[in-house]
């Protein structure tokens, strides 16, 4: 066992405090009775109650949810297809360019992504609103999905697909019956990632949204400019809860599958050791 030095403990405590103290404060103050955000007067859940009467916030939450679900689903389909073609045809012309272009939006400043989307929508004369935000979110979350799925495909044994085709499955049947079920965990975590990214995006939404399509982060931001209220703390706490749950579920599911697999493999191994020689297959009637 490695002993924990004081320095190690200190740096871990400090690191986590640095990361989570602001969030913890926010959560605590969401249960503050006082209207004044910085003065603690007692525990209360009343701000969660008033949330339900704030129609503007509820509308924004509804828009965000719809944008998130739609764009995450669309980007999962597109991102998975991109990942498949990039890993499947490793020597098609312009592959390097393509994979570079898939990764670029990951590091592109959001302001630029948002601005270029805005310019595009203006240029082709689309009214900005719900659909433009959804489109923009699909575009920028797609590359995250592609990256997640592609890393799974790297360890994918292609002979499994060949076996399916050899047994008479068309390429489409092979994809839906063999490839997709095997890479599904990666596809799902891609979806969760896309959904949470869409949920908390402010910059790109600000550029591409229009009247009647204000997302939750946009609404919160505009309210905060008028002063932080405990109500805002409450909605943010809920948001944090949703995102944390999503991440946790994805992580736990992956881990459980991994553990189960290891357990099964150990069991099979132990069994094969017990009966050193298995009964061999016999010929028909022989």
């Amino acid at each position: 066992m490695v002993r924990w030095s004081r320095f190690n403990i200190a740096s871990i405590v400090f690191g986590f405090a640095f990361l989570y103290l602001p969030i913890v404060l926010l959560v605590i103050y969401s249960f503050n009775e006082s209207r004044l955000v910085t003065v603690w007067t007692g525990f209360s859940t009343k701000w969660y109650g008033t949330l339900l009467t704030n129609q503007a916030l509820l509308d924004a939450a509804w828009v965000t949810l719809r944008v998130g679900l739609l764009s995450a689903s669309a980007s999962t389909v597109l991102g998975t297809l991109a990942a498949l073609s990039l890993s499947r045809y490793p020597d098609f012309r312009g592959r390097v360019l393509f994979s570079g272009m898939i990764y670029a939006p990951l590091v592109m400043p959001e302001v630029i992504t948002g601005l270029s989307m805005l310019l595009l929508f203006v240029a082709i004369g689309i009214d900005r609103g719900f659909w433009t935000v959804t489109l923009a979110h699909t575009t920028f979350t797609m590359c995250f999905v592609a990256v997640v799925v592609q890393s799974r495909l790297q360890s994918f044994d292609r002979s499994i697909e060949e076996a399916a085709m050899d047994l008479g499955a068309t390429p489409v049947a092979t994809f839906f019956q063999v490839t997709l079920p095997i890479i599904l965990p990666a596809v799902l975590s891609g979806w969760v990632l896309a959904f949470t990214l869409s949920l908390d995006d402010l910059v790109i939404a600000s550029f591409t949204s229009g009247p009647g399509a204000t997302t939750l982060p946009m609404r919160i931001y505009s309210q905060v400019r008028l002063g932080v209220t405990p109500e805002i703390n409450a909605i943010c706490t809920i948001l944090i809860g949703v995102v944390a749950c999503g991440t946790l579920i994805a992580a736990l599911a992956t881990r459980r599958r991994e553990l189960q697999r290891q357990k099964d493999e150990r069991a099979a191994f132990a069994e094969s050791m017990v009966r050193t020689v298995d009964p061999p297959p016999a010929a028909a009637g022989g």
């Binding site: 002979s159 499994i160 399916a164 085709m165 095997i182």
Partner: peptide
């Protein structure tokens, strides 16, 4: 003629079993 239309089946060196299917489903696939 694509692989899925050939009256030929192959047993792969790596076995290439479908990991998400039971033994029964693996055999029934074709």
């Amino acid at each position: 003629i694509p692989p899925y239309r050939r009256p030929v089946n192959m047993m792969f060196q790596s076995y290439a079993l479908f990991p998400h299917m039971t033994v029964e489903k693996n055999i029934a696939f074709g």
